[in-house]
């Protein structure tokens, strides 16, 4: 029987951690882009559009991420699309992130006084100009800390993709456990690696918050 050293375990987990980081980044960047479009739709004077976005947010906030992953994975297959776990995982996580980010940012925009919009209107700026030059720069300052904080949720959320067979940190941990029969060592290492990814992010969010509060 082959003996696995701690280094063997860690090395294999580190390889898998790449995919956790990459998946998180794709979900976060994709979610930000979609989230920004949803935010604009929600803020527009078009009532139906705004309500549709609100419903979208409720849908993603009111169902478990695990179900969203299942639905993306099996749903796409049912529609006849060639699904890989990669597409299903990135799609589900992107949509999930976009819903939460839109909601966070919408709150930040609402905290900017109506007078700022009105001053822009009175100066003949259009809706997008008001948003881009007046509202978003101010809302953005408030949004930085909660947005970075949400990134931590995304990183931990990627663990669920192991259930549809995506080999990231958690799935790799399960596979290594099955080969080594050392679940405690392996899962401790997995947890440690998650912590090493997430801790710097939340520490950064806190320092950003302090810095922006100071000004």
């Amino acid at each position: 029987m082959v003996e696995f050293t701690l280094w063997d375990i860690l090395r294999n987990l580190l390889f898998a951690a790449r995919w956790t980081v990459l998946l998180s980044l794709i979900a976060f960047v994709g979610g930000s882009l979609v989230g920004l479009l949803l935010l604009i739709a929600r803020l527009s004077t078009h009532q139906l559009l705004g309500r549709a976005v609100a419903a979208y947010v409720q849908l993603f906030q009111g169902t478990p991420l695990l179900m969203q992953l299942f639905l993306a994975y099996f749903g796409m297959a049912m529609l006849g699309a060639q699904t890989s776990v990669w597409t299903a995982a990135t799609l589900a996580l992107t949509l999930y992130s976009s819903a939460f980010l839109t909601e966070i940012w919408h709150g930040c925009v609402l905290s900017i006084s109506r007078g700022q919009w009105e001053a822009g209107q009175a100066l003949a700026l259009g809706f997008i100009e008001q948003l881009r030059h007046i509202i978003l720069p101010q809302a953005g300052r408030i949004a930085v800390a909660p947005t970075v904080g949400f990134l931590v949720q995304v990183v931990k959320g990627t663990a669920l993709t192991s259930v549809i067979g995506f080999v990231e940190l958690t799935k790799a941990g399960t596979m290594i456990t099955n080969a080594t029969f050392k679940p405690f060592v392996v899962y401790s290492s997995v947890a440690l690696l998650y912590f090493l990814i997430c801790y710097p992010i939340s520490a950064y969010a806190r320092s950003l918050e302090r810095k922006l509060d100071a000004r």
């Binding site: 007078g115 009105e118 001053a119 209107q121 100066l123 003949a124 700026l125 101010q138």
Partner: peptide, 30 residues
């Protein structure tokens, strides 16, 4: 709105821009 200016009770200056940029923003964009 280019012909009719408005001044508000609560000033509504843009706090993230300098005084100069507050003044130059709209003529620059519009």
């Amino acid at each position: 709105r280019q012909r009719v200016g408005m001044i508000f009770q609560s000033f509504n200056l843009f706090p993230h821009l300098t005084v100069g940029k507050n003044i130059m923003l709209a003529p620059g964009l519009v």
